[in-house]
Amino acid sequence: MSDTGAGSGGSGESLLFLTDEQLRKGIEAMFFAYRGFTADPDRILQKHGYGRAHHRAVHFIHRTPGTTVNNLLSVLGVTKQSLNRVLRTLIEDGLVESRVGQRDKRERHLYLTLAGEALEQALSDAQRARMRAAYRTAGPQAVSGFRQVLEAMMDPEMRRHFAATRDGDQ
């Protein structure tokens, strides 16, 4: 290990001087890891006729019960039309409930139903199992470093959303 400080990795190369080839390998690793990370949920979603947009909506509604449609739009970074299609399907299928706001009747607050909670549980169980296995293989220092890298890659607005959901502020 080099003496360039924490986070320099076991290869002895400083993270400050990554080559284009090392970066390319990291990019490809992200592509392949994402493929693995989404493969198990994709199989579950396919049985229901859903896609990844449905998964993201279910995930964030579960994380912040009562979230508004506008907040979900901001978190997901999708168009209103796109989100409305996804929500319409989830509501019609009995997975999401939309309630009119108490203070502002124009707001719609979103909640998972029992069926929505069950789907979310199946999806997140699959991803947690994969993450748990990867973290165990990589070790505790890698877990912390991986999260730091992911947070550093986020746009500032997404980092704020992430921090708020992580801290339970949303």
Score class of each variant (00 low, 15 high):
84 N>D: 10
138 A>P: 12
9 G>Y: 01
8 S>T: 03
58 V>F: 05
5 G>Y: 08
138 A>R: 13
123 L>A: 00
163 A>W: 02
12 G>T: 00
141 Q>E: 12
52 R>E: 02
35 R>M: 08
101 G>N: 09
53 A>F: 13
63 R>W: 02
27 I>L: 07
47 K>E: 13
81 Q>D: 12
28 E>N: 07
84 N>H: 09
135 Y>H: 13
74 S>F: 10
64 T>E: 09
167 D>C: 04
55 H>Y: 13
65 P>F: 08
51 G>H: 13
122 A>W: 06
170 Q>C: 02
130 R>T: 14
167 D>Q: 11
170 Q>P: 00
34 Y>G: 07
46 Q>V: 12
124 S>C: 06
7 G>M: 04
62 H>T: 09
137 T>Q: 15
131 M>C: 10
39 A>P: 02
81 Q>T: 15
119 L>N: 04
62 H>Y: 13
10 G>D: 03
9 G>P: 01
167 D>V: 04
110 L>R: 07
134 A>N: 13
25 K>M: 07
117 E>D: 05
63 R>L: 07
9 G>I: 00
161 H>N: 08
88 R>N: 09
104 D>N: 13
117 E>W: 03
5 G>E: 05
89 T>I: 06
16 L>V: 04
80 K>S: 11
29 A>L: 14
145 G>V: 14
33 A>Q: 14
145 G>W: 14
92 E>L: 11
122 A>F: 05
99 R>F: 01
41 P>E: 06
160 R>Q: 10
32 F>M: 07
133 A>E: 15
166 R>W: 10
25 K>S: 05
105 K>M: 09
50 Y>T: 03
166 R>G: 06
28 E>M: 10
14 S>N: 04
48 H>T: 06
83 L>V: 07
85 R>S: 08
10 G>P: 00
138 A>F: 15
148 Q>H: 10
152 A>D: 14
86 V>H: 06
120 E>R: 11
148 Q>S: 10
72 L>M: 05
137 T>Y: 15
6 A>D: 11
16 L>F: 10
125 D>S: 11
43 R>G: 00
70 N>M: 04
139 G>K: 10
119 L>D: 02
26 G>H: 05
164 A>I: 01
74 S>V: 07
31 F>W: 14
155 D>W: 06
98 S>N: 11
135 Y>G: 11
107 E>P: 01
79 T>W: 06
17 F>Q: 12
53 A>K: 15
159 R>G: 01
68 T>Y: 06
5 G>M: 05
26 G>Q: 04
69 V>H: 12
162 F>V: 08
6 A>Y: 13
87 L>Q: 03
30 M>P: 00
78 V>S: 08
72 L>I: 03
58 V>Y: 06
33 A>H: 15
148 Q>E: 13
59 H>N: 07
161 H>P: 03
133 A>K: 15
92 E>I: 07
6 A>P: 13
57 A>I: 05
24 R>Y: 06
114 L>Y: 08
85 R>P: 00
100 V>N: 07
39 A>S: 11
86 V>S: 02
130 R>Q: 15
31 F>L: 13
122 A>S: 14
36 G>C: 07
100 V>W: 10
108 R>P: 03
74 S>T: 09
139 G>T: 12
5 G>S: 03
99 R>C: 00
139 G>L: 06
134 A>D: 11
125 D>P: 01
32 F>G: 00
126 A>T: 08
108 R>I: 02
110 L>H: 05
137 T>M: 15
99 R>E: 03
110 L>N: 02
